[in-house]
């Protein structure tokens, strides 16, 4: 019966994952390997193709009506940033990185909303102290977003804009500092992470484990969080045994990734803080500001 309960938990989290995350690993890998019936993604590999592809990056095509509604809520708030930016007489090539960065912020804010909905679907999460729910999201959400970038990436580039665009790693590396430094550590992490060959049902459990970390700073009531995490960890261990019977030590290897993630997030937050100082005209999305402020 205990194993049956763990399997039911795995199914529940997988269903929530499919409900809240529009671009699954299965779909992303199909796009990356050219196996989709739809058109191939638009490739951004230089400034010219970036300018051509900008209309896609603005995320105008949204997968579902529910996402469309929620997304407009987030972009309305963010629209003021692009408006303010248009008045500045910047060199067009200097401005393009900032515009791209603003688009990334809008998508990230939407992704935070998706992760929040997923977190709320973890059994027991919404019964936790509300302040602890906030703390778990504040500290966990960037780690979750970085894990979720892995399926979109290969060694040559990454899918963006819900899989409609492929941006090359070389192009990202050619941007001016510190923009060029932002995604390279995520590529390095993703290439290694992808060798574990997790599927979407494994990912759902792993994301829940990361969210339910009882050692986040400032938690008021750690015990119920650790109890929830322990149950999900059991479900993950069983899932990996059943889904990857030949992959030795996969559970242990996966848990080790959580240590790598903390360093990547710390470095990421420092880069954003650097950007805030160096790019006078750059504004941070209010939701992302909330998350990053006093994080590490």
């Amino acid at each position: 019966p205990e194993a049956a309960d763990l399997r039911a938990l795995s199914r529940h989290l997988y269903e929530a994952y499919l409900k809240y995350f529009p671009l699954t690993k299965a779909k992303a890998r199909a796009i990356l390997s050219g196996k989709t019936a739809d058109n191939a993604p638009f490739v951004i590999h230089d400034m010219k193709s970036l300018l051509e592809g900008e209309q896609f990056i603005n995320c105008k095509q949204i997968p579902t009506p529910e996402h469309q509604q929620q997304m407009s809520a987030l972009t309305v708030a963010h629209g003021g940033l692009s408006g303010a930016h248009q008045g500045l007489e910047c060199n067009i090539l200097d401005a393009v990185e900032l515009r791209f960065f603003h688009s990334c912020q809008s998508r990230s804010a939407e992704a935070v909303r998706e992760v929040t909905e997923f977190a709320k679907s973890i059994p027991g999460f919404i019964e936790l102290d509300l302040n602890d729910q906030v703390t778990l999201l504040k500290y966990g959400v960037i780690e979750v977003l970085i894990i979720m970038m892995a399926p979109l990436m290969n060694k040559d580039g990454t899918l963006i804009a819900y899989g409609q665009i492929f941006m090359t790693r070389e192009f990202l590396k050619s941007l001016r500092k510190p923009f060029c430094q932002m995604l390279e550590p995520k590529f390095e992490f993703s290439v290694k992470f992808n060798t574990l060959e997790l599927d979407d049902s494994d990912m759902a459990l792993f994301l829940a484990v990361v969210i339910l970390s009882g050692d986040r700073p400032g938690l008021l009531n750690v015990k119920p969080i650790e109890q929830l995490q322990e149950t999900v960890l059991h479900a993950l261990e069983l899932q990996l045994k059943l889904n990857h019977p030949d992959s030795l030590q996969l559970f242990a290897k996966l848990l080790q990734k959580m240590t790598d993630l903390r360093q990547i997030v710390t470095d990421h937050v420092h880069l954003i803080q650097l950007l805030k100082k160096s790019e006078m005209e750059m504004c941070l999305h209010p939701l992302l500001q909330e998350i990053i402020k006093d994080l590490y």
């Binding site: 929620q70 309305v76 909303r113 709320k120 906030v134 999201l137």
Partner: peptide, 20 residues
């Protein structure tokens, strides 16, 4: 609570364009 107003709203399903 004020420091994490939007996160609170997202958790309590009370996010609207005006709030954001």
């Amino acid at each position: 609570k004020e420091k994490h107003k939007i996160l609170h709203q997202l958790l309590q399903n009370s996010t609207s364009p005006v709030d954001l």
